[in-house]
Design a protein around this nucleic acid. Structure first.
Length: 616
RNA sequence: CGGGGCGUGGCUCAGUCUGGCUAGAGCGCUGCGUUCGGGACGCAGAGGCCGGAGGUUCAAAUCCUCUCGCCCCGACCA
């Protein structure tokens, strides 16, 4: 069998050229497996009904992968080759910044996760089970605990730091809703890296290296549009994290970017520089608003814009406390921001009874006459606190109040218990917080992320080293992930035409696709076989369509396999000692090339494409 | 976990409303022949207990009940 390997050319004058190749270990065997007649993985004329997104459709139709169950896929030979190449590029870049590859188990004992406290914190996406001895076990969804266990025993001195360990390993997350083929699955291969440091400065320095390595990786695997954005750092205050987003319509994440690219953020944390109407406060005035329970009904009834109203939204926090929020009527609460502010990972809408307990009237609620209490957390968005003369609920059935002004109408004692912060969801067109230009909204597939963890795991798990001053200190950590098959799917989303994927040379399952037409004729077979052998001998990866199918059939399959360069050999061209050369990314145009020079011709084309993608 | 849709050869689907011949078509697959430059054609084949269980009926892919699975939208997502 052919195994992937990585060759690296000698470093000359600072310029490094990486070439990922599949070295044919045994020529005879290798040639057998690279004939299309023997390739396992049917190309399908029609997409299975399940497949909706481009990458899902083409990866199934092209015979790259097959569904096994919800969110579970087998990779067939083509998909396996591509993901192996992606992984090889990732390994090169990890090694380049000092990474050391390891392999940790997929199955882990629950006790390890109890040490970090995550066993109880993480919900149903963690698959828990018991072994034959009734010992609680789990399937690793990420490996912080496992790697800390290694670090705390193997790294004992500051002299060993900083250090970075990584693996390319299976992860399992019992996702509530897998979707879009390989983009969101339950079991997947992930490159996960972990770094260990003696200081925040060291972590930040390495974090920057990871950022650069990721940028190179995604460029090298051929993503055309992949950006790093600020992301939600979850419950860890102050921690920095970035997500690498492959821009694609089917992406699950919503991203806001400023036109000049200076600001890029996930919707979960995106902010904007909204301006608020400031005018002289007018007198508070009660108004009869029968059955106006929603902002829409209220605005219509009063004949005003949504932005002149203020809405109250009630949640139930993790510990059962009522979370009372206010925001300008035209804006939406961003629950990710709110969770962070009130430090509650869980949030659900409160029921009417809870709202009434707080002294508010559902549908007509506001801050008016609300008494501060330990049981209520009140968070007010800047838009509600700073706008003048808003229409708010009167906390009285069928009544609202005109001209509410937070500064004037809420008592100081109440204000002492109110948090005023940004809890608004950014909308497309809102002013960028940096430049003030209208923000653009994009959809992205999260192909990688990098995270400054700090001591979240090292502290509770006692991951310490002995410092130069002779004192035991806790390591500072970072973690860095890349979804391998998800990256493959993201490439398809960005690199395809109507007929199939257009693989970048760096990750293409093969470099060259030879099609033999009139294949029953001996001279065609001989020419194909000779070119095939010659290219293979030079380390070029070739798939050879030896099936003798009709042209249209063969070409359609070639398009689905998406190999960057196609060479067509037929009795017609052979009569003039010529072959046809075609780039996958250039429609149906082809070049006629002399048979004796095709080998050099295609090798140059491969080298040029490799250079373009690998130079960074 | 809420809402919606779908389960019939490997794939796409018809048949279900209105129960009744031996369960069909196209693609794919096997054999033979004719074709041969963007998914050809003829002939002959292989392959399905209609997701599963129970029920109604002389008779169930079709009607009823219960289940299981899959897809989409939402909630969720270290």
């Amino acid at each position: 069998m052919v195994l992937p390997s990585v060759t690296r050319s000698p470093v000359a004058s600072g310029e490094i050229v990486f070439i990922v190749v599949f070295t044919p270990a045994k020529r005879q065997l290798a040639s057998y497996f690279m004939k299309l007649s023997q390739l396992i993985g049917q190309r399908l004329k029609e997409a299975p009904r399940d497949a909706q997104t481009i990458s899902h459709i083409f990866l199934i139709r092209g015979g790259y992968c097959r569904p096994v169950s919800t969110g579970l896929f087998s990779l067939l030979p083509l998909g396996t080759r591509i993901t192996a190449k992606i992984a090889a590029i990732i390994r090169e870049e990890m090694d380049r910044i000092g990474g050391q590859e390891i392999k940790m188990p997929v199955v882990l004992p629950a006790e390890l996760w109890q040490e970090s406290g995550r066993y109880d914190k993480v919900g149903a996406e963690l698959l828990r089970f018991k072994d034959r001895n009734e010992k609680p076990m789990l399937l690793g969804m990420t490996h912080e605990e496992a790697v800390v266990q290694i670090a705390r025993t193997e790294i004992t001195s500051y002299k060993q730091l900083p250090a970075m360990l990584y693996q390319v390993q299976t992860k399992y997350r019992d996702e509530a809703r897998p979707r879009a083929g390989l983009i969101r699955v339950r079991e997947f291969t992930m490159k996960d890296a972990y770094s260990f440091h003696t200081s925040q400065e060291s972590l930040e320095e390495h974090y920057e290296q990871e950022h650069e390595a990721y940028t190179r990786i995604f460029k090298r695997i051929g993503l055309k549009n992949c950006i790093s954005i600020l992301s939600d750092s979850g419950m860890i205050g102050g921690a920095v994290s970035h997500e690498f987003m492959a821009i694609a319509d089917c992406g699950e994440d919503t991203i806001f970017v400023s036109p000049d690219g200076s600001y890029k953020a996930n919707r979960e944390i995106a902010t904007s520089k909204l301006t608020y109407v400031k005018e002289e406060p007018k007198q508070l005035q009660e108004v009869h608003t029968p059955n106006c329970k929603t902002i829409d009904e209220l605005a219509t009834f009063l004949g005003i814009d949504h932005s002149q109203t203020c809405k109250a939204v009630f949640y139930k926090g993790q510990d059962g406390t009522l979370v009372f929020t206010c925001i300008r009527g035209d804006l939406e609460i961003n629950e990710a921001k709110l969770k962070k502010i009130i430090k509650s990972p869980e949030l659900e809408f409160a029921n009417d009874a809870m709202i009434e307990d707080a002294g508010a009237v559902p549908g007509f609620a506001s801050l008016l006459n609300i008494k501060p209490s330990d049981k209520i957390k009140i968070v007010i968005d800047h838009s509600a606190a700073q706008s003048s003369n808003l229409v708010v609920g009167a906390n009285k059935l069928d009544y609202h109040c005109l001209n509410f002004n937070y500064a004037r109408d809420v008592g100081d004692d109440a204000k002492a218990n109110i948090v005023v912060d940004d809890i608004a969801t950014v909308r497309e067109g809102d002013p960028c917080p940096v430049t003030g230009e209208p923000l653009k909204m994009l959809k992205g597939i999260e192909v990688g992320n990098i995270f400054q963890l700090g001591t979240k795991y090292s502290e509770p798990m006692g991951c310490k080293y002995l410092d130069a001053d002779g004192k035991s200190k806790t390591m500072i950590m970072g973690c860095y992930g890349i979804g391998v098959a998800r990256s493959m799917a993201a490439v398809v989303e960005q690199c395809h035409d109507d007929y199939g994927p257009i693989w970048p040379i760096t990750i293409a399952p093969y470099h060259v696709h030879i099609v033999g037409l009139n294949h029953n004729q001996p001279q065609v077979q001989e020419a194909c076989q000779k070119l095939y052998d010659d290219l293979m001998a030079d380390g070029i990866e070739v798939i050879y369509d030896d099936r003798g199918e009709k042209a249209g059939f063969a070409f359609a399959d070639a398009d689905l396999i998406g190999v960057p360069f196609r060479i067509t050999i037929s009795s017609k061209t052979l009569a003039n000692n010529q072959v046809e050369f075609k780039r996958r990314d250039q429609g149906k145009d082809f070049t006629v090339v002399a048979l004796e020079s095709i080998k050099d011709y295609v090798k140059q084309a491969i080298a040029a494409d490799l250079k373009t993608l690998n130079e960074c």
